[in-house]
Design a protein around this nucleic acid. Structure first.
Length: 649
RNA sequence: GCCGCAGUAGCUCAGUGGUAGAGCGCACCCUUGGUAAGGGUGAGGUCGGGAGUUCAAUCCUCCCCUGCGGCACCA
């Protein structure tokens, strides 16, 4: 028998008989390791303890203390245990796939009857019984034909499709625990008893297309979460509940910022306080853009079909456009068809074409807070995050190819500053290259992709590749920021476009006196005001920094004898540009403090007899229990300073 | 758009085959209270829309709309 040499993490090399398993190796090292072992890493592959090793390589034995590996195994084996439970309860159910995801797993089933919440607890109970059996999990490599024959006999059509999709040079691996069998690339735990019976929960049922394709039948997906123990599961559930409290849809209603209603799905009704927040943010953005050399414009909301045909939107984007046929009540004259703008770019090119002619004017940066309408699929709508009517902080930079690099760099600077001002210090950059459905020739795409990559690298920006996710007219950078509870949001974007200037006939006169084609950079920082405000609400949990807070100060009275003074203080604050309101209601001070705290007002000023006499106010800040009595003039100058937006400090 | 679930007062939600209830909020009255809910009285609902079954529908059935959780989509 031949032998193989295996290198361990401490760089020691040992010789073993060819075909030895990681379980046997662990056993040779020590009994306790053999007990604790759950899997191995072999030459960079996650390796089942039971798989034979037949060549030299690096090996590491994993135990339950190797957290990421342990969780992966637990969740993967959970998926199998759940599928078995489902098939034991409802044998007619067809199994498909069941991968590990963040915090848990899912498994997709084909079954005529929908799963109910009751069914979920039945499945959970069955899973616990299976776990209690502590049955070994074993695997075999089968011939492709044998596997197909097996699944044909067992009426598992999805599994046949999966076997057929396995590349010729990859093994077809079958797993068992008890009598239950599944096709799986592994690895798994070696015993069903190793998963924590109290560390998992079935979360929800949802529809999901077979193989993620909307042409395929819809399956039923059951999601589960699993951790190493009950404590970790509990803390995860607690975190979910906390995240739910921040939901901008809930906070938005509580704080009376906006609402939606049936007659306008996906369109926001901004209430006074929400609109104050919106305007504060918009004015800040306008100042930042002016400072960065942009000019602001405004273009029509409704444009004729012919222009959308020229721009390419009619062909690539029509399904998402609201059409307007007021000029054409019979719907018989296609030329009279108009559409609400889903993007601002074609309008901006019209302005460029009227006013720009010379290379001396480039780069020309044209910004618009453009109100766009897109007919989003009904299932995509989600509060402020995904709407059908929204305003972009949109701009197009018309420049030469040579200017892409410096424009990209200064854009990234501007974006970083703005994100930091708004409370987001961390963001990642993704580079999205050409999609399958696109306009423009391949060599143009190659040029655009190269230009954007080298500009990004020159700006000293790390990026991840996001293949095939570019816009139909060009590659793009996506800026994804991370909020206070670690969730990711794609907001900013920078897109290089060689196509649209060509289609809409944009030119400039070069130094040589000839006409040239400018490049367009489409860019946004917030993305849409609606979405960004949704993110701000969730990030701050509605407790906005003073400069953004819709209502900054409430002046409230302790006795009605202070009414006059309270009115006067409020008036003084308002005249300084602070957003202050007075509360003279006939309620106890406790009651009023509670109410304004719940409403997340950053500063509550209480005035009673004492304050009236001394010309002071008692200040209570949101989140603090302490109260300080402050001279009115001192407080005013403090608040004026705090109310300044970050760019004016 | 697809699968599943839901829609009852401004908000959160309970409830029933015989046309409805709570808490909060709102209005009014009493209370003038020193930093997270003082007490009382009252107003407020075509039970998402339409059709059907029934003597009778908020409740059962079907269709539609909207929302929620996913999937697909995010140009």
């Amino acid at each position: 028998m031949t032998s193989i040499n295996l290198t361990f993490p401490d760089n020691s090399v040992k010789s073993f008989p060819c075909g030895i398993t990681a379980a046997e190796i662990a056993n040779e090292i020590s009994q306790s390791l053999a007990k604790k072992a759950v899997s191995a890493n072999f030459n960079g592959t996650h390796w089942d303890l039971s798989w034979p090793i037949t060549c030299d390589g690096q090996i590491k034995i994993n135990t339950m203390s190797d957290e990421p590996v342990a969780l992966e195994l637990i969740r993967h084996s959970m998926a199998h245990i759940m599928a078995r439970a489902v098939q034991e309860i409802w044998p007619e159910t067809k199994v498909t796939i069941g991968p590990v995801i963040d915090n848990g797993w899912y498994y997709d089933f084909d079954r005529a009857q929908p799963f109910t919440p009751d069914d979920l607890s039945k499945i959970e109970d069955k899973m616990k019984k299976i776990i209690a059996l502590r049955e070994p999990i074993r695997s075999e490599i089968w011939a492709r034909k044998a596997a197909i024959a097996h699944y044909t006999a067992n009426h598992e059509p999805y599994k046949i499709e999966l076997v057929e999709a396995i590349p010729e040079d990859s093994p077809v691996r079958m797993y068992w625990h008890g009598d239950w069998q599944d096709l799986c690339r592994g690895p798994h735990l070696s015993n069903t008893g190793q998963v924590p019976a109290d560390g998992f929960a079935l979360e929800k049922v949802a529809g999901a297309y077979w193989r993620g394709n909307s042409q395929n039948p819809m399956l039923q997906r059951i999601y589960g979460i699993a951790f190493r123990n009950r404590k970790q599961l509990k803390s995860h559930l607690h975190m979910l509940a906390e995240a739910q409290k921040r939901d901008h849809r809930r906070v938005g209603v509580q704080m009376n910022l906006f609402h939606f209603q049936e007659e306008a799905p996906g369109m926001v009704f901004w209430h006074p306080d929400g609109w104050t927040l919106y305007r504060t943010l918009r004015d800040y953005m306008a100042r930042q853009q002016t400072r960065s050399g942009y000019v602001e414009v405004q273009t029509p909301a409704v444009l004729e079909r012919s222009l959308w045909e020229e721009s390419g939107h009619w062909e690539k984007f029509r399904e998402n456009m609201f059409l307007v046929e007021i000029d054409n009540p019979q719907h018989d004259d296609q030329a009279k068809c108009n559409a609400l703008k889903p993007m601002n770019c074609p309008g901006h090119v019209q302005i460029y074409n009227k006013i720009q002619k010379s290379y001396r004017d480039l780069p020309f940066r044209m910004a618009e807070f453009g109100a766009c309408s897109r007919y989003e699929p009904s299932g995509a709508l989600h509060g402020l995050m995904r709407t059908r009517g929204f305003v972009q902080d949109d701009a197009h930079i018309f420049c030469t190819e040579a200017q892409i690099e410096t424009e990209t760099a200064s854009f990234i600077d501007m974006l970083s500053q703005i994100y930091a001002d708004l409370g987001f210090t961390e963001f990642v950059v993704k580079f999205a290259d050409r999609p399958a459905k696109r306009a423009g020739a391949d060599d143009v795409w190659t040029r655009a992709e190269k230009a954007l990559i080298s500009a990004t690298e020159a700006a000293g920006c790390d990026y991840k590749l996001n293949p095939g996710e570019g816009a139909f007219y060009g590659p793009k950078l996506e800026f994804v920021l991370t909020d206070a509870i670690g969730r990711d949001w794609q907001c900013g974007t920078l897109q290089v476009d060689f196509v649209l200037p060509e289609r809409l006939g944009a030119t400039y006169v070069g130094r040589d006196g000839a006409k040239h084609r400018p490049v367009m950079l489409h860019r946004a920082i917030l993305g849409s005001f609606e979405r960004f405000i949704g993110i701000l609400i969730e990030n701050y949990e509605g407790k906005f920094p003073f400069w953004l807070a819709p209502l900054q100060v409430v002046v409230t009275t302790i006795t009605s004898q202070a009414d006059g003074f309270a009115n006067d203080v409020t008036k003084q604050l308002n005249s300084l540009g602070l957003r202050a309101k007075v509360d003279l209601r006939n309620e106890k001070i406790n009651y009023k403090i509670r109410e304004h705290s719940v409403a997340k007002v950053p500063v509550i000023l209480a005035v009673g007899e004492k304050e009236v006499q001394e010309n002071t106010v008692s200040v209570r800040r949101l989140g603090e229990k302490s109260v300080t009595q402050v001279d009115l003039d001192t407080l005013k100058s403090q608040l004026i300073e705090e109310a300044k937006p970050p760019d004016l400090r």
